[in-house]
């Protein structure tokens, strides 16, 4: 995974709550067997509307998505994270994320930041009045800076460390091979097995 330390870019105000993963990447895109090439599927249905925020020229090239509450609800598809990244987003800001989406994002180096709704509203207003305004998402200092205002955010220390160092979760877990083997050795015999008798 690519490390995330700090990112500065322009913001896209997505004034919608409950943005579900079917909107982020519709199911027909999930037939692909790669992790790339999903950028054209991002918000595919909404992008058919010329007024949709991503179609407005002033937001071209923006890399920080500022979204309404409950972003990423629904399906566990990691393709939603890949689509956002393939399109060019480095961070998503919302007052609440769905759990699976958040876990997926942090495993791929897409930083999802929880901010109070009033800060989201302030960033929406900023990005709408001045689309050239830059937003800095600083994982080292754990704060979002924009328009002369900085807001601290929380992220659990373990997830933060993994992101900052771009660590590979599987390699880290396999350091504990002895613990896994010991657990396996004491599992009860009645536990299910998929082996065909």
């Amino acid at each position: 995974m690519e490390a995330f330390t700090t990112h500065t870019g322009r913001a896209v105000p997505l004034r919608r709550g409950n943005v579900d993963t079917d909107q982020i990447i519709p199911a027909h895109w999930l037939k692909k067997v790669t992790r790339d090439g999903f950028e054209d599927g991002l918000f595919e249905a909404w992008r058919k509307d010329p007024q949709f925020v991503l179609n407005q020229p002033q937001y071209a090239g923006a890399s920080v998505l500022v979204a309404g509450r409950d972003f990423g609800t629904g399906s566990s598809r990691e393709h939603a994270v890949w689509a956002l990244q393939n399109y060019g987003f480095k961070a998503v800001l919302s007052s609440r994320f769905a759990d699976i989406f958040r876990g997926n994002s942090l495993k791929n180096g897409l930083l999802t930041v929880v901010l109070p709704q009033e800060d989201i509203e302030r960033l929406w207003a900023l990005a709408e009045t001045d689309p050239t305004a830059e937003v800095t998402v600083d994982l080292v200092g754990r704060e979002v800076r924009a328009g002369g205002v900085s807001t601290a955010f929380e992220l659990d220390e373990d997830a933060r460390r993994r992101l900052l160092e771009g660590l590979d979760d599987i390699s880290l877990t396999l350091l504990h091979e002895a613990d896994i083997a010991a657990f396996e050795a004491r599992r009860p015999a009645h536990k299910p097995s998929t082996a065909v008798a």
């Binding site: 393709h79 699976i100 495993k107």
Partner: peptide
């Protein structure tokens, strides 16, 4: 439910 990175993690560990 888990994402694909976690699917790989469970397959491996």
């Amino acid at each position: 439910g888990i994402g694909t990175s976690q699917v790989e993690h469970v397959l491996a560990t």
